[in-house]
Nucleic acid binder design. Structure first.
Length: 582
RNA sequence: GCGCCCAUAGCUCAGCCGGAUAGAGCAUCGGAUUUCUAAUCCGACGGUCGGAGGUUCGAGUCCUCCUGGGCGCGCCA
């Protein structure tokens, strides 16, 4: 465990969610009824069915060939849930529905106010997780396509860490590809020194692209590039020096972007880090019989897996060189043997599905038992539904996207709240603009290609970052106006439907966060936060806070405080900040 | 040729292990403000879940086939 999570776990009092309580009570009731464990308790699919439901009777009825409703009838008397719920009811085909008592919700809400973790349980078995995300290439510009892996990976890392896992964030930088043949050729033949000083990355990209274009039409350049690459890999001093400079310049560029995006890595092991381990990897695979020589290359075949039968993985080229498959196998070794990982997550675009299926399959055949997950995502499309490109057909530079987000947010702040001073407006624009870009990405199911739209992501209506931030800001405004320090009341009274509804939502944060990691879907959390903000706004309309009288006032202030904490924490788990004003 | 991913309201998208009458937002239309940020709320309209079979008490979800789109498939990463 990291120091951070250990601190939290030692200081928080153990809380259980309603879902956990009801689940345990259900299995107790099933046992008392002489029935085996079955079914599950889930949040009700519709408010008219109460708050939670179980399909246990349906599952058991199917197994035993009995009538589901009469089975439910037998289970219900054994359900001792009176502390939290109204008497359970049978509905539909045989569902058992639970409706929470307002007093139980109020008590749970009061406990949440005392809990730093807002009720979110720690993982039962903490894992050491190496998470590989972002992974930009040296000498290539960071572009809009890097947002998804970077933002998704960061959010998953934050959530895993909060749940008590030991997370190691690794930036697997592409610092050793064939692109260096072209970059070094360009450096020696095309470099404009003045431009390099002025705009290092721009010049690096220019010589790379120029060389790349030349190789397409000029076979002499192609040969020269290949030659430079061979010399680099053979350890040629001059080429190594150039390579080193390129890497250093690119790292500066990456770090600038990470600073803006608030992304942090624990380690940065580029491909070159594994160079001296590659020969041993291939020797080992050959020795163990996993790999064989085919057409001069060393390949691993997967003849027993139909989809992979005709798709070998090459781990050494026929010219003796290694490729990224070799590096990735060495990377697995390192993460498990040197870093002690029992779990490895790799976050990349969907096109690499086949590659990582092969790599993880090799790892399993080598006897590794770690939990390997390839977490893939779709692409970002332009309004024309094609991969987002600039007018000239290039990738949209990441920096331009981030800058424009802030500029657009700045205009909106200016329009909505012109009285703020300049520095404050700029800070708010930064917070809102970056939040909008990140949230637009995370609020979508990761596998779908999504259409990038400034107007949608910066809208204050709908499932957007500004909508959530605005809920937070409204709360902060109430406390500023109240002018008093918040102190949690001993008990709450939930009288209004809007209060009860908001409080119920607040208790569900703890049920939602762990769910994200089931299938690596941060959008489950964004959906929850959107619904929470929506419940808050409805409460805000229906229930005056400062002008209400006790005991309503203390309850409402408590609901505001807790909502603010959940919004802030929830967005923080997504790598998104909240402003105090906007 | 083979393989993987995707297809849900006019538009953008949710819908994890199969569960009740498939949900939001935008757009459109209609309401709400002497009130803590109307940057909001409430309501209406809107669907053969790409198509056809199958599995079962129950299918948007699982299986098979088909259509349409994206991506990948031995020496780039």
């Amino acid at each position: 465990m990291t120091r951070f999570s250990r601190l939290l776990s030692s200081s928080h009092s153990f809380m259980e969610t309603f879902q956990t309580l009801l689940t345990r009570e259900l299995s107790r009731a099933l046992a008392a009824s002489g029935l085996p464990a079955a079914g599950e308790v889930v949040p009700a699919t519709d408010a008219r069915f109460g708050d939670y439901q179980t399909n246990a009777a349906l599952v058991l009825a199917k197994q035993r060939g009995e009538n589901p409703r009469s089975l439910a009838q037998k289970i219900i008397p054994h359900l001792a849930v009176g502390e939290w719920c109204e008497p359970p009811t049978i509905a539909g085909a045989g569902f058992i529905n639970f409706t929470l008592k307002p007093a139980a919700v109020a008590a749970q809400t009061a406990r949440l106010l005392q809990d730093e973790r807002l009720g979110v349980p720690l993982a039962e078995t903490p894992h050491r997780i190496v998470i590989d995300f972002g992974s930009p290439n040296v000498a290539k510009p960071m572009h809009i396509g890097h947002i998804r892996s970077t933002v998704l990976g960061d959010a998953l890392a934050r959530i895993a860490q909060f749940l008590g896992h030991d997370v190691i964030r690794d930036n697997h930088i592409g610092d050793w590809g064939t692109q260096f043949g072209m970059v070094i050729y360009g450096w020696k033949n095309l470099l404009d020194r003045a431009a390099l000083v002025r705009d290092p990355i721009g010049e690096l990209v220019r010589i790379y692209k120029t060389a790349h274009d030349l190789t397409k039409s000029d076979s002499a350049v192609r040969d020269a590039c290949r030659n430079e690459l061979v010399r680099l890999q053979a350890g040629d001093e001059e080429n190594l020096h150039i390579w080193n400079e390129c890497v250093a310049l690119s790292l500066q560029e990456f770090e600038a972007a990470y600073r803006i995006l608030d992304i942090h890595y624990d380690i940065q092991r580029g491909e070159s880090f594994y160079n001296d381990r590659l020969p041993a990897v291939v020797d080992r695979l050959l020795k163990s019989g996993l790999a064989e020589i085919s057409e001069g290359a060393v390949c691993v075949f997967f003849r027993d897996i139909p989809e992979l039968a005709e798709r070998p993985c090459i781990v050494r080229k026929s010219d003796g060189g290694f490729n990224y498959a070799t590096t990735d196998v060495a990377t697995i070794d390192y993460r498990i043997r040197d870093l002690g990982a029992d779990t490895v997550w790799v976050v990349t675009g969907a096109p690499q599905l086949l590659h990582f299926r092969q790599i993880f399959e090799i790892a399993r055949r080598e006897g590794y038992t770690a939990d390997f997950r390839h977490i893939t995502h779709g692409s970002i499309l332009g309004e024309d539904r094609k991969l987002m490109k600039t007018r000239s057909g290039d990738n949209v530079p990441l920096r331009e996207v981030l800058d424009e987000a802030v500029v657009r947010a700045r205009k909106i702040v200016e329009q909505k709240n012109p009285d703020l001073d300049e520095a404050e407006k700029n800070a708010i624009a930064q917070t809102i603009g970056l939040a909008a870009v990140k949230y637009a990405d995370l609020s979508q199911y990761r596998m779908t290609d999504y259409i990038f739209s400034w107007d949608r992501m910066l809208s204050f209506q709908g499932n957007t970052a500004p909508y959530l931030q605005n809920a937070y800001v409204r709360i902060r405004s109430i406390f500023r106006k109240a002018g008093e320090e918040f102190s949690a009341p001993n008990e709450l009274t939930l009288a209004e439907p809007a209060e009860l509804n908001l409080a119920k939502r607040l208790t569900q944060f703890a049920e939602t966060v762990p769910q994200v990691l089931n299938d690596f879907r941060p959008n489950i959390l964004t959906n929850y936060l959107f619904e929470l903000a929506n419940a808050f706004h409805a409460f805000y309309e229906a229930c005056p806070v400062l002008k209400s009288t006790e005991p309503a006032r203390a309850t409402r202030l408590a609901l505001c405080e807790l909502t603010a904490r959940v919004l802030q924490r929830g967005l923080d788990l997504l790598g998104i900040k909240v402003p105090e004003k906007m």
